[in-house]
């Protein structure tokens, strides 16, 4: 703030100096030639009483003064009234600019500064967000790589396990088939033995039945029937069997 004020004051001083230099000729040109001549005449008459009383030296001086009246105005110093009016206008303009322009410029500069600051903040925020996004992306990428590696490892482990399971199952199937084949052989052997035994028993019993049937005469039949009747009378003992519901 103080720096801005100093700059303004310096600019004001430079402007005032330039105005004074520019106003010089106008100040010099503020006296007319006739007025200057009359003034010189009045001066001579006041000093010498009349022009005739002038000596040579005074006359030369009087001539120089008159020549001075017809010389051009000062190229540097302005006329006084120009200085006054110009200065007054300058002061009014300066005061007006100080009153209205400076706050507007300050507001514009403040707004500009604020906008730049906010843009910088936004840029910082965007940069921070970008960095965070980048970090997240890198983290996700790292996670993805880790997950992919884990999946590959798991798949490899599953493949190994599956291979081992298949191998074990195949071995178990082979063992089971061997056991079943052995059991079938044993069962067939036992079945053959049982069939043979049954067949032998049937042949033997059939032969016995024929022998017994041929050997049973009427007396034996009567004896068997009588024995059966005695057994039934004795509540079914001695060889008889009861079945049924």
């Amino acid at each position: 703030m103080a720096r801005t004020t100093l700059r303004l004051l310096a600019a004001l001083g430079v402007a005032a100096a330039a105005l004074a230099v520019a106003a010089g000729p106008a100040w010099a040109a503020g006296e007319t030639i006739g007025g200057c001549v009359i003034e010189q005449v009045h001066y001579v008459e006041a000093e010498y009483g009349s022009l005739d009383a002038l000596d040579k030296k005074a006359l030369e001086k009087f001539e120089d003064d008159l020549e001075g009246c017809v010389e051009a105005p000062s190229p540097i110093l302005p006329e006084l009234d120009e200085i006054i009016w110009g200065g007054l206008a300058f002061v009014i303009l300066f005061a007006f600019m100080w009153w209205k322009g400076l706050p507007a410029v300050k507001r514009a500069m403040d707004a500009r500064s604020e906008k730049i600051r906010s843009d910088l903040d936004a840029a910082d925020t965007a940069k921070t967000d970008a960095m965070r996004t980048k970090s997240e992306y890198e983290a996700q990428l790292a996670d993805a790589k880790t997950a992919a590696a884990a999946i590959i490892d798991e798949a490899r482990a599953q493949a190994d396990q599956l291979r081992q399971d298949l191998q074990a199952r195949a071995e178990a199937d082979i063992a089971e088939q061997r056991a079943r084949a052995a059991a079938d052989v044993e069962s067939s052997r036992r079945q053959a033995i049982d069939d043979l035994r049954t067949e032998v028993a049937a042949i033997a019993v059939g032969a016995a039945e024929r022998v017994v049937g041929a050997s049973l005469d009427a007396d034996v039949h009567r004896s068997l029937i009588d024995g059966y009747i005695d057994d039934v009378a004795g509540a079914g003992t001695n060889g008889t069997s009861r079945n049924g519901g």
Partner: peptide, 17 residues
């Protein structure tokens, strides 16, 4: 063959050879 088998309803008294 020989002997007797008696059936009374569902009851059976089997004394046969």
């Amino acid at each position: 063959v020989g002997g007797v088998v008696t059936e009374i309803g569902d009851d059976v008294i089997d004394g046969s050879v």
